[in-house]
Design a protein around this nucleic acid. Structure first.
Lengths: 334, 334
DNA sequence: CATCATTACGTAAACGTTTACGTAATCTGC
DNA sequence: GCAGATTACGTAAACGTTTACGTAATGATG
């Protein structure tokens, strides 16, 4: 049923080699035969079979992206950037939902290998020994997005989490705040948890602001955890005037509990978020936050993958600058 | 360099046919040879090449999904559901960002065809003649998600937009509201625009509530448009007590402007949204809204694709029930 | 006009699988 | 113990391309 290059060749009275040449712009045919063949292709409605092509060329023009959570707003921005870069490189992207599970991640890595994809963007939290094993013997380019690996030589693109959290804290301090709490990711999360806590502590120390351990509540990154974390924080630190949240979702959780308890933001409490997702503009009050250029980061990560494919050389990691976006949730103390 | 089935066969002293049989659980080998071959596969670290496989089987275990906007929260839920169903059917999904552009959509359809994907979930607004053309001669299963086509016999899964908007409006009416405005999608959007407006009007008529044309502001679906639309609406309808927003993002825009103008929600103004995205729980106040079970819908759409592949028969469209989720943004008038 | 380079093709072998068909060995039932 | 059925394989032809190599025809050069 399906029309192949042979059918085209036969009908155009040429060999399949000639058709192939025309299809791929390789030299070796006259203008006339080209026109003839092109016309036959039209008539027959022929489309080349990418699978057969891939079998020979060993390129599938497909890259895989592993994400822990598809419908996370941060991840969907990453994916958007990746898709964009892929499209510019005539490739498409397969999304793999790992649910942060090591086993599912491994299964997906195998799957991608069998599918002969050209490269991988890995956004799925911690990158383990097992993952490296698989990836290493596939010999395909991989880049880590918003994560990194200290054990293996794999390029990454991210912002400097510690530094960004430092900036956020410093921003509050410069606004006159001294009693500052933090709701953050778990300490066991060595990518986005502990480093941001470190940044917070470092800023407090640099500005010689005394602080207590219980001013920091490590709990996670989502909205519910933000509500929980802030509830705990406000109970053990009632005269706090500002809080740095390690994600925008956390910050919204803070806003939500504050609203319930009639704590006015920013008049009684200042809040700074992290990520600069779209919800940061959509909340009431709008959220001052540390911006991660997520779409750009996704784009860059994918571009590095393509660069590695072409040059066959390792590439440099890329650290994106962060930036404080001022909105309404932080007030200067007089 | 790459290890093929031949290498395995040679090292195990069997033919490639036998290896293939073992790989695919087809009968015709003893326990002994199986063990032997399996062991060699382990030793060599062999992985079957899905491309070569696909060339023969004509199945790539890949489906494509076309979305107008990847980082829309609604779309990412759809994608999540689709990915889930795909994974359960041992397939993976390629995401294609169409930007609602007909031309890009067509390009992507061609691409997917060349990639020999097994089926398509189409979530990209209006489904045109041109799209049908391409899809029809590929002969692959397609299902429309959250859209439909009156011209072509393609199954869809969605909620009944008109009915859902009717319910939302009715809900407000039953809470005692009479002066109700609407911020909606454009009238030219025959999928999610006009039908929801129709539902609104129908409810007002059914309950014999007089209304004016300018109580409806068709403008779009996102946050910014919500702000704009509501600003316009409140100016020409100042004594309005409630508003139905055709999306949660629109509703958040309403909330935002109301906050700026010191209109208290829900005390002075009730707001009902549409979609039940995660932001509906995260806003202040939390948003009463019409729930679309987006993840389930995505899942169902993909499942229909697989069903069509297996049975080779057309399937029925599927209308999901909607549901009002009560939160804090609507108040009963006494 | 003879020689050589270039052009415009065609032939056939890959790429890594699956699978129809053939064949020798083993098993079954009497 | 023998005919026939069954089992456990091997051989080779597909699947739809790309591409190295060969060849005849054309063009350029002296």
């Amino acid at each position: 049923m399906t029309i192949t290059i042979k059918d085209v060749a036969k009908k155009a009275n040429v060999s399949i080699a000639t058709v192939s040449r025309i299809l791929n712009n390789k030299p070796g045919y006259t203008k006339e035969t080209e026109e003839k063949v092109l016309q036959v292709i039209q008539e027959l409605g022929y489309h080349p079979n990418g699978i057969a092509r891939g079998l020979i060329s060993k390129r599938t023009h497909t890259i895989g992206v592993l994400v822990p959570e598809i419908s996370s707003m941060l991840m969907s921005k990453f994916i958007q950037g990746i898709e964009h870069a892929a499209h510019e490189n005539r490739s498409s992207v397969i999304v793999c939902h790992t649910e942060s599970k090591g086993q599912k991640t491994q299964k997906y890595l195998q799957l991608l290998q069998e599918k002969q994809i050209d490269g991988i963007v890995f956004t799925s939290g911690v990158f383990t020994q097992d993952h490296y094993q698989i990836i290493n013997d596939t010999n395909k380019p991989v880049v880590l997005l918003s994560t990194e690996s200290q054990d293996f030589p794999i390029p990454h693109v991210k912002v400097n989490d510690c530094h960004a959290a430092y900036s956020a804290t410093e921003y509050l301090i410069k606004k006159g705040h001294r009693k500052i709490g933090m709701v953050s990711g778990n300490r066991s999360d060595i990518i986005a948890g502990q480093p941001r806590i470190d940044g917070f502590i470092k800023a407090m120390n640099t500005y010689q602001i005394p602080m207590k351990e219980e001013w920091i509540v490590p709990i996670g990154f989502n909205f519910e955890e933000g509500k929980q974390g802030f509830t705990q924080l406000i109970n053990q630190f009632p005269d706090m005037t500002a809080v740095v949240a390690a994600s925008d979702e956390l910050a919204l959780g803070v806003l939500s509990v504050a609203y319930q308890r009639n704590i006015s933001v920013p008049d009684q409490l200042s809040v700074i978020g992290y990520d600069n997702l779209r919800i940061a503009e959509m909340s009431t009050p709008t959220l001052t936050t540390v911006s991660q250029p997520a779409v750009e980061m996704g784009k860059k990560a994918a571009e590095l993958v393509f660069q590695m494919m072409e040059t066959n050389k390792p590439v440099e990691s890329y650290i994106f600058p962060h930036e404080i976006v001022e909105r309404q949730s932080v007030k200067a103390l007089s």
